[in-house]
Design a protein around this nucleic acid. Sequence first.
DNA 1: TTGGAATGTCAACGAGGCTGACATAAACTG
DNA 2: CAGTTTATGTCAGCCTCGTTGACATTCCAA
Lengths: 167, 167
Amino acid sequence: MADLRRTGGETLLFLTDAQLRKGIEAMFFAYRGFTADPDRILERFGYGRAHHRAIHFINRSPGLNVNTLLTILGITKQSLNRVLRTLIEDGMVESRVGTRDRRERHLHLTERGAALEGDLSIAQQARMRDAFRRAGPDAVAGFRAVLEEMMDPELRRYFDADTGGET
Amino acid sequence: MADLRRTGGETLLFLTDAQLRKGIEAMFFAYRGFTADPDRILERFGYGRAHHRAIHFINRSPGLNVNTLLTILGITKQSLNRVLRTLIEDGMVESRVGTRDRRERHLHLTERGAALEGDLSIAQQARMRDAFRRAGPDAVAGFRAVLEEMMDPELRRYFDADTGGET
DNA sequence: TTGGAATGTCAACGAGGCTGACATAAACTG
DNA sequence: CAGTTTATGTCAGCCTCGTTGACATTCCAA
């Protein structure tokens, strides 16, 4: 696998172009697999990945406001608004006026929305769980470490500062 | 990191929903980082990710035919054709009629196309190389193992049957 | 010689990004 | 209190890149 060169007492990772290219293609192909299962469910509702992402992060942080979600998703408010509007119309998401600051809208999943989120999670987690099981615990730790190093610093800070804590 | 439970002599990976959710978000955030640098270059040419993907795989396998590229990319020929047409018009890609089977078109990068591919590769590989270095060789092996397990079987077969061989 | 495969093209459509401009309400500030 | 800033929503229009359907061309192979 990874080629180790010992150079003056220091262990270095020797990365050929071919190895890096394989890493790049692995990301591309794996991401396809990663989204394939939820995509099939979303299709039944006329939703796309944008809806999935919104639902995911609203479920992760109930009551988060629109601006925060905008930052997480890295899209414009116009794009998010289109998605959010359909989710609210469909009774998947509820938008509550803030109590402390009444300009803010706090987003929550409705019962229907939570049910859809559950279906999407089950599908996506199933593939990841299988992949984790087959690859083994050490591989999972490495997977997570590399992905984290690949994030933009701002997003990584958000990612690390999670509510869950475990991992 | 990964929680290990010893159960009747068998070591199992105990994967909580929260751990899987973190894995899912890691994929999402990391993929953003993964595409960010090439995207900036592509913008200067008026190209998108579809152009990048075509250029990448033509560079990887010079002379591959349109149908093979279609399978790799997982899109329709109409979508690919639009991208390919602009790349050919711009003198980035050359489409040569097949010798054995003259219905086939074999795709090659021109000098300009190869130069652009080089720029894109350098940008994307730089981030991956840094991530690999910071995470360490064991993590890289794990990263690759998990991603491979996440691919759809057909694509994984293609991925594994690589020309490069190493890693 | 005919059927089917590989490729290309045209048209239309939809999702989901983008920018710019503008409206509204609420909060903050002097 | 007046003016500014912030948070959000909305309208219009644009682009990329996916989709389907229909159809032409070329050429291999039975």
